[in-house]
Amino acid sequence: QPAIRWRMTSSFPKTLDTLFGTSEFVCRRVSEMTDEKFQIQLFAPGELVAGNAVLDAVGKGVVDAGHTASNYYTGKDPSFAFDSVVPFGMNSRQQSAWMIMGDGKKLMRNLFKEQNIYNVPCGNIGTQMGGWFRKEIKTVADLKGLKIRLPGLGGDVMAKLGALPQQIPGSDIYPALERGTIDAVEWIGPYDDEKLGFNQVAKYYYTPSWWEGGGQCSMYVNLDKWNELPKEYRAVFEAACAEGQAYMQAMYDTLNPPALRRLIAKGTQVRPFSNEIMTSAYAAAESIYEEISAKNPRFKEIYDNWKAFRNSQIQWLGVAERRFDNMMATVIR
């Protein structure tokens, strides 16, 4: 087999060792499985390509591959969100089923082909936390005028409920939350949030992130490069990404529990979103999807397929899985 050298960029900074770590893991596995013949050099965001510009960069061949989250590119077409996460979407396991066995793979491949990209699912964050709030939010009325830093479709839903999504500069988030210039900030989950120290400036930690019930990360490969790649290497690459998929979820599942315990021990108050808020948010999300579907036939095609799959998943997992989970939560007390 020939010696091949690729460049890969990550959308995630090195300090997010879970996310950046997954791309490192994939590069290492590819090298190991090919006896170091297929080498991928990994770059942090900003080194070659900005973190939110991986889609264009991979499509054009600035880099050969990129590890990113597709919901960064919803400004191009909201359909990209289905490759990552949408409000009231599928959890990690359901998303994997749609991508591996459902129609997700085919639908997404068609979408990415137009960008000259071959996409492979590579990692899932799992259900995220609903962010840090300075004051308690009990009803939809409490959301009125709430200044929250929440990007993308989640922000659209919040705006429908009367909140003010404010995408203030990254460096201003911490001081703005500390002083109450904004009321709430969302990030990822306990392990990543703890490092940013939001618990020092906001007391309430809400759960769950109904706008991010999962969070699939994707590996993008330039389509020309993919087609040039020897068949064995393609298989190796996809296998490494599949391993990466399991790796990221395992990492989060292992690191999040102790991190949340530390936060609680330091005085963080965890609060669940009320059912009123979540059902109103669900209705708002549905109406947003209908609006987009009316304008965007591709979105509609994917959305219909995705929604039917999601609903069947929720029913089935409730029959066995969720019953088992609830029972276990009760008995270990």
Partner: peptide, 21 residues
């Protein structure tokens, strides 16, 4: 290096433009 690296030039400028800080 490969010349395609420089396709990211407009984007590098864009990331300076959109840096609100």
């Amino acid at each position: 290096l490969s010349p395609s690296i420089y396709l990211s030039l407009p984007d590098r400028i864009f990331s300076v433009m959109s840096n609100e800080t």
